[in-house]
C-alpha cells in the first residue's frame, strides 16, 4: 500500500470518531450555550466501559451501547448538578470530570481479579472489536473496513441528530439555549430540555470514546486529556470555513472541521514536526481558527481595494 494512502486512512480513523465528539460538544457549547467540561470525562467513561466489557467477553456492540449510555449518565449527572443543585455551569462539568477519572479506574479494574486499580488496559489479540468483527480477506483492506464502519456510525448519528432537532422538542431545546426566558414564556420546560440536551451530547461523546479506544485496542486513564480542545477546534474550524447559516449546514461543517483538524496535524507530523511541540500546534491552530473571520474580512477588503485601484 502506498505510504500516502496509509496516511489518509490514519487521518480518517482518528478523525471520524472526533466528528461524533465535535457534534456532541457542539450540542452543548453552541446549541445549549453551556460550556460543558464533562466532555473529557464522558469520553474516558465511554472508552473504559467499551474496553473493560470487551475484555471480560461481552459482545463489542453491546459494550459500545453500554459505553454510550455511560457517557449519557455523565451528562445526566452534570445536568442534575446544574438544574437541581443550582451549581454554576462551568463547575458542574469540572466536578463530573474529576469524578470520572476515579470511576474509570474502577471500571478498568473489572478486567482483573487481584487489583481494583489498573491504569492501562489493552485488548488481547483474540478480543473482538466492532471493527474486527467485520475483518474479511486480506489484512490490507482492514483500514478501509474500519473507516467504513466509523463512517456508518457517523452517518447514522448525523441523521438521528438532524431529525431530532427538527422535531417540536428539538426546536424547543434550541430555543432554550438561545433565550431561556422566552422559552419558559412559550411553555417549554427549560430544565428538562437542558437535561435532555446534556444527556444526548455526552452519550455521543461516550460513543466517540468507545470507538477511539476500540480503534486503539486499549484504554488508559488520562487518554482523554486534550480531546475537549480537539472538539472545540473542529467546531470553530468548520464553522469559519463552511458557515453556520442553517442547522444542517452547521452539522456538516463541524463534521468536516474535525477531519480538517486531523489533516493539519498529520501534515505537520509528516513534515517533521517534533512530537513534543504537538500541544503548541494545537494552541496555534485554535488561535488561527478563531481569528479566521477577521483574516477573511481583511482579505476581502484588500481584494476590493486593489480592484478599485485598477478601475
Amino acid at each position: 500500500m502506498p505510504y500516502i494512502v496509509s496516511v489518509i486512512f490514519n487521518i480518517l480513523t482518528s478523525g471520524l470518531p472526533c466528528c461524533l465528539l465535535a457534534l456532541g460538544i457542539y450540542l452543548t457549547f453552541r446549541i445549549l450555550d453551556f460550556a460543558d467540561l464533562t466532555a473529557e470525562g464522558s469520553l474516558l467513561i465511554g472508552g473504559s466501559f467499551a474496553i473493560a466489557l470487551i475484555k471480560i467477553g461481552v459482545n463489542p456492540f453491546v459494550a459500545t451501547l453500554v459505553a454510550t449510555l455511560g457517557g449519557g449518565l455523565c451528562g445526566y449527572l452534570t445536568s442534575v448538578f446544574y438544574t437541581k443543585l443550582r451549581i454554576p455551569k462551568i463547575l458542574c462539568g469540572i466536578i463530573t470530570m474529576t469524578a470520572t477519572s476515579s470511576i474509570a479506574l474502577l471500571i478498568l479494574g473489572l478486567t482483573s481479579k487481584d487489583s481494583s486499580f489498573i491504569n492501562i488496559v489493552s485488548l488481547d489479540t483474540d478480543n473482538e472489536t466492532v471493527f474486527s468483527l467485520f475483518y474479511y480477506g486480506d489484512p490490507i483492506f482492514r483500514p478501509l473496513i474500519k473507516t467504513g464502519i466509523m463512517l456508518a456510525f457517523v452517518v447514522l448519528i448525523f441523521v438521528i441528530i438532524y431529525f431530532f432537532f427538527g422535531t417540536e422538542y428539538g426546536i424547543a431545546i434550541r430555543s432554550t439555549g438561545i433565550n431561556e426566558k422566552m422559552s419558559r414564556a412559550q411553555g417549554i420546560n427549560t430544565k428538562q430540555a437542558s437535561i435532555v440536551a446534556l444527556v444526548i451530547s455526552n452519550a455521543l461523546i461516550g460513543l466517540a470514546g468507545a470507538l477511539i479506544c476500540q480503534s486503539n485496542r486499549g484504554c488508559s486513564v488520562g487518554y482523554s486529556t486534550g480531546y475537549l480542545v480537539v472538539g472545540l477546534a473542529s467546531i470553530i474550524i468548520g464553522e469559519t470555513i463552511f458557515g453556520n447559516k442553517t442547522f444542517k449546514r452547521s452539522l456538516i461543517a463541524i463534521s468536516i472541521g474535525a477531519i480538517i483538524y486531523f489533516v493539519i496535524i498529520n501534515v505537520a507530523i509528516e513534515l517533521g514536526l517534533n512530537g513534543n511541540l504537538l500541544n503548541l500546534l494545537y494552541a496555534v491552530l485554535i488561535v488561527f481558527a478563531l481569528s479566521l473571520p477577521l483574516i477573511k474580512r481583511g482579505i476581502i477588503y484588500l481584494v476590493k481595494e486593489r480592484r478599485e485601484k485598477h478601475a
Binding site: F164, R174, S175, K181
Partner: peptide, 30 residues
C-alpha cells in the same frame, strides 16, 4: 430581545409559539 429567539428564523419562532399550551413532542416534526 427577550420576547424572541434571536438566532432562529421568524418561522421557527412562530412554530415554537404555535405549540404553546401543549407539550412539545419529540416524535412530531416541528
Amino acid at each position: 430581545m427577550v420576547g424572541t429567539a434571536a438566532n432562529m428564523s421568524v418561522y421557527e419562532n412562530l412554530e415554537i409559539a404555535y405549540a404553546r399550551g401543549r407539550t412539545h413532542k419529540p416524535w412530531k416534526w416541528g
